[in-house]
Nucleic acid binder design. Structure first.
Lengths: 163, 163
DNA sequence: GGCAAATGGTTGGGGTTCAAACTAATAGCA
DNA sequence: TGCTATTAGTTTGAACCCCAACCATTTGCC
């Protein structure tokens, strides 16, 4: 049923050797797959960076967006961050609990919150930003400055036109 | 404390208008952030495609890798797919339960499984592949054939050198 | 003013992921 | 042979994620 052209056969031929070279088929040249692998690899790398600051990687974009847009609401924030608003509930809760973010009700719209960074939040963000800059420098080296601009432009186009 | 230079002030100025333009700060030009947003957007799009086939998007790469490498083990598969092997346990279980994948113990190594696609699995994969091709065509259009090759090459380099 | 529709945020359910601890089987080596 | 280290796969726990349903409030409109 399963002929000799399978991984076991290949492994046996190679004398039980470790890693057989994998056939990725069409995946090898498809954008989607390579995009996913690259993104996840880069994210893991940044995750290691941010762990050294004692933060989770996902917090960085959140803190940055609050810092740059003081008083932003949770819905606006989730939109800018590309996540569902319900995903933000536990995140904001955690940030408030740990004293990095302050949140108050709007006077004119008592449904909405407005978010601000506390001094502690600004300090944490500063540390995270330093790490992120290192991370970016490494990505810059990998990509090469010549292609960088064009690369980002393509990423933006994907985000805009595949939505 | 919080001056007039905040989102609420801006929103009030605009007469309670809907979307205030967000300041992304350094995120706007950083690779990591744009990579994440682009990947997630593309993934969502493919998710819609695969839902029409009644499959989850994550299953596609798994099925393809099994199809191209019959008899592959779960560890090899998880490695090729860029996931932890423990993530694969429920996935394979589900695929076996639904009759898309067959799994047998190796005779020479009774710890390991070898995975194969069943006829039903091949059929499902064929349908998914058709959708994936459409998805890829759209990505191609967005990126432009001129940059496509270079773009993938950069993604591969990121995956390889940020690991 | 008053009632329906829309909006901000939370909750609950299901799915995916990783990391660490664990079991079973194999390999290495004395 | 027998002990130790390694390897394949599973389990468990925690973090995120989305979606749909749900309150509370506000807006729109008559």
């Amino acid at each position: 049923m399963h002929g000799t052209n399978d991984v076991n056969a290949r492994r046996r031929q190679r004398g039980g050797g470790a890693d057989v070279s994998i056939d990725f088929g069409p995946l090898a040249t498809w954008i989607g797959f390579n995009l996913r692998i690259a993104q996840e690899t880069a994210f893991q790398a940044f995750s290691r960076h941010s762990k050294e600051v004692g933060e989770r990687p996902g917090r960085f974009a959140t803190l940055t967006l609050i810092a740059r847009n003081p008083g932003i609401s949770q819905t606006e924030l989730s939109l800018a961050n590309g996540r569902d608003k319900s995903s933000l509930t536990p995140v904001v809760e955690d940030l408030v609990r740990r004293g990095l973010v302050a949140r108050r009700r709007l006077e004119n719209d008592r449904r909405a919150y407005s978010l601000y960074l506390t001094p502690a939040g600004k300090k944490t963000l500063a540390m995270l930003t330093r790490r992120a800059r290192q991370h970016e420098r490494k990505l810059d080296r990998v990509i090469g400055l010549r292609d960088r601009r064009r690369f980002i432009e393509i990423l933006r186009r994907i985000a805009a036109e595949m939505a």
